[in-house]
Design a protein around this nucleic acid. Structure first.
Lengths: 170, 170
DNA sequence: GTAAACATGTAACAGGTTACATGATTGT
DNA sequence: ACAATCATGTAACCTGTTACATGTTTAC
């Protein structure tokens, strides 16, 4: 149930509409917790229903500006401090590695080289994202940059590993 | 739909029952593609229904020994070579980082220190796993070791990042 | 005899994806 | 006038989790 907390987290910084949040997900959270339009609107309705957020203002085109409530802030803090992050990470990419033996060594190396490529691409995308965002000194900027550094290090690690792995084949 | 391919992949190496596969998931694939008992049995029934695997033998206690068919091998190879691995990775751990600003700097550092700890713990678990498995020179062993190396490098990267990140707070 | 391990199956629920559906406002 | 953007909502479907439910064989 992290989507609700992602929404609460974004609303803890400033008020926003579902549409605004959708955009925020696509830019800042896309690499960490992607969410679809349908999911966001449904969850916002639920959050408002349970009193964790409220409709602070209504604008043109049916726009609803949501704001986090004290209850919502309490829930956000509770999630951050009292609940353990879930460690279950499913990796399609890594699962495939287990079964490379059914391919020819050449095909297996192709796969690992492709991983090198997407790691480089991933790092490059993050670098571009880093340049396109105008970083302030608000909370989301400070911590967003820390998360971005993770992404860069992750991609470097994966590239080096994929290169090493390709050399192991045959 | 990677579960079906995980099952096909394991069955490509040797025949096995649902129970055997459950054990294999818990040991070799737990860190990459966890699956529950309920899920495995359901998927095996579906796979047998569509002809990608067959019941090669029946044993005591209703045991069904499954074997991959030629069709199943073709599907496995198709998945590995023709379809792109899904890159969507949801990380609860990283999502929380974005919102550390709602906590006190001390609490935020506590969280990052906890990440250091679980990274060390994760690496240690993998080292122990590495020792407890009797690695052969079969395909699954060779590629399992490559995946394990990924896990070790990943945990090292995350530990270093978490230490760096904790130093960035305040 | 009885506990542990072996062995399978199903139902209810939660979370996420894709597709459909609709309409208002702004900029050119 | 028209396109792009803003803005929300719902339904069908798929995957995964938790819990329930049942029965057999082996080892001590």
């Amino acid at each position: 149930m992290s989507l609700r907390h992602a929404l609460l987290g974004l609303l803890s910084e400033r008020t926003a509409s579902g549409y605004d949040l959708l955009k925020l997900f696509d830019t800042s959270l896309a690499n960490v917790w992607p969410a679809t339009q349908s999911q966001i609107y449904t969850e916002l309705t639920k959050l408002a229903g349970s009193g964790l957020i409220t409709v602070a203002a209504e604008g043109p085109r049916g726009r609803k500006e949501y704001a986090i409530t004290d209850e919502g802030m309490a829930e956000l803090r509770h999630w951050l401090t009292e609940t353990k992050p879930q460690r279950t990470i499913r990796s399609d990419i890594l699962l495939r590695v287990f079964f490379l033996g059914v391919l020819t060594p050449e095909q297996a190396r192709d796969y690992l080289n492709e991983l090198t490529r997407i790691s480089e691409e991933g790092a490059e995308n993050l670098r571009q994202l880093s340049e396109s965002v105008d970083w302030g000194d608000d909370n989301l900027s400070v911590h967003g940059r820390i998360a971005l550094e993770y992404g860069l290090r992750f991609n470097t690690m994966r590239r080096e590993w994929a290169e090493w792995a390709a050399a192991q084949i045959k």
